[in-house]
């Protein structure tokens, strides 16, 4: 191919605009609905922009991802999207991509390699998500006293730690808000429901609980059932705020059973492609970290419509 004779980003951009782009995408797997949605949205984005997307599902194995990247390099793709399964061990394969002058964009997770080995990383700020949830609650409660129960993610995982910290930052200085119980629900519906049942038992049948903060929507959905089965009205007797914005939480919000959710957008590919297009066009180097929006949705944001928009993304 002609391209191999050319050097320099500007010349690269010449060929880039001349033909349809091919982008390789090494996805971790399909372990959650969110990741399935990320895959769906990446395909959609590529299609809209007229790219050819080479998709590779690594099934949770780094060696599969490394093999996929090597194969993308061999195919001489125009860019590589990588959602890394682990943080370490990427140096040599990223170096290979760099030497082949193929820009790599990290999606959703970071790596421990030097940041000159990749173009940029697109991801959300987990602490910020927690903060947005906390700020909503602070505003919603006003000056009233509020005893909060917290359903944490899997103990020790970075989303659990960061979302807990962000939320605490937001409610700091508001003496009327207090986290009275905090326990892990392992990010699952079943865990959320079981732990919420115990919270309700422990807090006077739920009468003393003002709000529930769940580190993800699935636990919130489980907890909502527990609240209903205890004879209380979730969303009214107990405020429910959580993070992720999966379709089912919009259904709960439409039914008035959940109050707010913070979106962890599965559309990481959109900002990634924007950055790539700028780079292809004139070699513009993006920031090393592109933070996606952590948008807050409440019952006022047409939850039924949001549900319809998301339900087919593969969540």
């Amino acid at each position: 191919m002609m391209k191999t004779l050319l050097t320099g980003a500007a010349l690269l951009a010449l060929t880039a605009t001349a033909s349809a782009q091919t982008v390789g995408f090494s996805q971790i797997g399909s372990e959650s609905g969110w990741r399935a949605a990320e895959t769906t949205l990446t395909r959609q984005q590529a299609e809209e922009r007229g790219y050819t997307l080479q998709f590779s599902d690594a099934q949770q194995r780094q060696e599969n991802q490394i093999a996929a990247i090597r194969s993308f390099i061999a195919q001489d793709v125009d860019a590589i999207l990588l959602a890394p399964v682990v943080a370490t061990g990427w140096d040599s394969v990223l170096q290979e991509a760099k030497e082949a002058e193929i820009p790599v964009v990290l999606l959703d997770r970071q790596v421990d390699s030097s940041d000159d080995l990749y173009l940029t990383a697109v991801g959300s700020d987990l602490v910020h998500e927690g903060r947005v949830a906390g700020e909503w609650l602070v505003g919603d409660v006003g000056d009233a006293d509020c005893r909060i129960v917290e359903l944490q993610g899997t103990t020790g995982s970075s989303p659990a730690i960061d979302r807990a910290n962000g939320f605490r930052e937001a409610i700091e200085g508001h003496a009327n808000l207090e986290i009275v119980r905090s326990q892990t629900g392992d990010f699952t519906r079943s865990g959320g429901k079981q732990v919420m049942e115990s919270f309700l038992q422990a807090e006077g049948g739920g009468a003393e609980i003002c709000a529930l903060y769940a580190h993800n929507d699935d636990m919130a959905i489980g907890a909502i059932q527990a609240i209903k089965e205890a004879g209380l009205r979730p969303g009214e007797d107990i405020r429910v705020v959580s993070i992720d914005a999966v379709p089912d939480i919009f259904q709960a919000m439409a039914a008035g059973e959940a109050n707010a959710t913070v979106e962890l957008t599965p559309n990481m590919a959109g900002p990634a492609f924007d950055a790539l297009e700028a780079f292809w066009a004139d070699g513009t180097m993006p920031e090393k970290f592109i933070q996606t929006d952590s948008r807050l949705y409440t019952q006022a944001d047409d939850p039924a419509g949001e549900y319809e928009a998301r339900k087919d993304l593969g969540y």
Partner: peptide, 13 residues
């Protein structure tokens, strides 16, 4: 377990 959360969670059940 499935009836409890009104949903089948293949990853976690």
């Amino acid at each position: 377990t499935t009836a409890d959360i009104r949903g089948a969670d293949a990853n976690n059940a």
